[in-house]
Design a protein around this nucleic acid. Sequence first.
DNA 1: GCAAGGTC
Length: 751
Amino acid sequence: MHLIVTEKNIAARRIAAILAPKSPKKERVSGVDVYRYEIGSGENRQETAVVGLSGHIVGIDFPKEYNNWQKVDARALVDAEITTTPINRKIVTALKSLGKEADRVTIGTDYDREGELIGVEALNIIQKVNPDIPFDRVRYSAITPKAIEVAFANPTNVDFNLADAGHSRQVIDLVWGAALTRYISLSAGRLGKMFLSVGRVQSPTLSLIVDREKERNLFVPTPYWEIHAELETASKEIFSAQHSTRRFLDKEVAAKVFKKLGKKAEVKEIEKGTKIDQPPTPFNTTGFINAANSIGLSPSNAMRLAESLYTNGYISYPRTDNTVYPETLELKAQIEIFKEGYFKEYANALLEKAELVPTRGKKETTDHPPIYPASLAKKTDMKEEEWKVYELVVRRFFATFAEPSTWETMRLRLDIDEEEFRANGARLLEQGWRWYYPYNAPEDRLFPELRAGDPLKVIKKEMLDKETQPPGRYGQGRLINIMEELGLGTKATRHEIISKLYSRAYIHGNPVQPTNTSFAVMDTLEKYSPTITKPDMTKLLEENMDKIAEGNIHEDFVLEESREMLTQVFSELDKNKDNIIESLQAGLREDKIIGTCSICGNDLLIRRSKRGSRFIGCSNYPNCTFSLPLPKSGQIIVTDKSCEAHGLHHIRIINQGKRAWDLGCPHCNFIEWQKTQKEEQAKQPKKERPKSIKDIEGVGKATAGKLEDAGIKSIEALMKADAIELAKTIKVTVKKIKNWQISCGSTVEDL
DNA sequence: GCAAGGTC
């Protein structure tokens, strides 16, 4: 039997369908789909089985004995042994039983570095049960009949060097990431769910965000002034113009000019031109995420929706770097799918063209084709947001075959009392590709028909106070763009890395804002382990991987060098241990400050009670007992927004896998809670008030005795007592005492 | 409980 292994199930299914003379038989082998078919008959009969993996089927890790963070020093991870363990047991079992049966195997995983590594992982497993099995490798950039037939007619060899290059990445990422994550978490005293992660991709990404925030904090705005005028033509048409000194830096100069302006203006010069907008290039993942982001979908959401469209066969594979359609993709046939249905007028317009020449992007890769629509759908086939994504992909695909769009531009120079004013206009002449792809279209800025020398009336003049703005925070789409430019992460992981920063409470909000914890972690890393905070680490890794792939150096050499570098880092870290602990913990403390105590003026902090529950308390405790409650679970993020009434920072709660919850001002929130409690109480039937201590629910003889010893002999005395102090003397929880006080008639506010 | 990369 000839075994063909692909990277994913859908590829296996489609390749089997292309290569089989009649439709292949689907079979389950230890829970994994396998597609079987036969070619020829009699002695020439050839049986084939095609099986799809699920990406990597084995992963690397440290041996179990390294798992304990408290017992095993982070440094020990640098030279620890590395083990390979199956991630997907079902597929490993299926591969073994198919491998035994096979007499040759063809690796048909994706045509990129990780694909080569995944192919070798599968081969290693097959060779365990069938050591001498002959093998070869096919490479294709699209799963179309043409591309697949060509690839299988020309099999090549497995590129073990390329797979080694991928493997070196795995090891370096694990060793650096795990060791530094453990070191920083231990130093900061943040263990368990609250650990502080570090990694080759996430740390430089976080660094971008932190650096931008620092720039913003240092930014000093400069004031400037703008002068605008509204003008009216003889035919009563109105438009506006701005003084040709766009920014006056001196207020007095601006005021002088402004004062000079009278009621009359004149057109001095009109310059007309045309501007041509070329049609957009095919979608790769980054381009798609950006376009989706600009119509209101977050990167993770856009990818989730694209994934579901892909698994349902509506669009092609959404994780690709390629922006050039491969030759094997039959583009005209893909457009013809849309001759009927929602997009028919657009498809037919394209099909009428004499020639279909698509645009080409800058990146041409072999992994997959750019994202294109794969089948016809109706609006009722899918959810609203899915349709939004599908429509975006269809329209973008069409636009790549369309004509440029052209604009008529107009530049106008005016004179108002010897001061020059300018205005620019633009009018769309030919829609071109914008007809197919009407997203974020710039609006026409229309002007009345004017000629040089025309007189105008100044109907309004305005001097505006402005100031320069700090650089803006990054939006998620922008961040993904920069990551791609810097070579950080891959098409499939960039949006996940950003989600990871959110869930680790390093960042919050949109546009993205770092927490104080991020500042503290980045400061420490930049001082003592700068390598991990810079995109250069990825660049160096890429260079080394290229060398390994070309056979110029051995993987082991690169790994050894990398471990030596990390050992250096650890000797720096150890030398400065005390400093690191101090500065990390000081930084983390800042994320706990909520504001100023309204009772005593000291800091209000996020604190933990002895029993582990969180609350907001005063740093002047026990002299000041002001406190506010906090939710039991979720990461607490102190935002930079403040409450107008109480001056406290707003709080956001992040629960893993859920949408962030804005709790707002903790004081306002508490007052709200009290209100609802009171309303609840009012609904409850009134209980009779206890007449003496013994009558209180939950107070037995022993407790009553303790209370008496503490000087509490009457209901009145109990109601007046300080619950916290009393809790200490008689060793009962504060909550219990407060409940007694409430049952005696105290309101929530009294307490 | 640690990374980043596949895939779902």
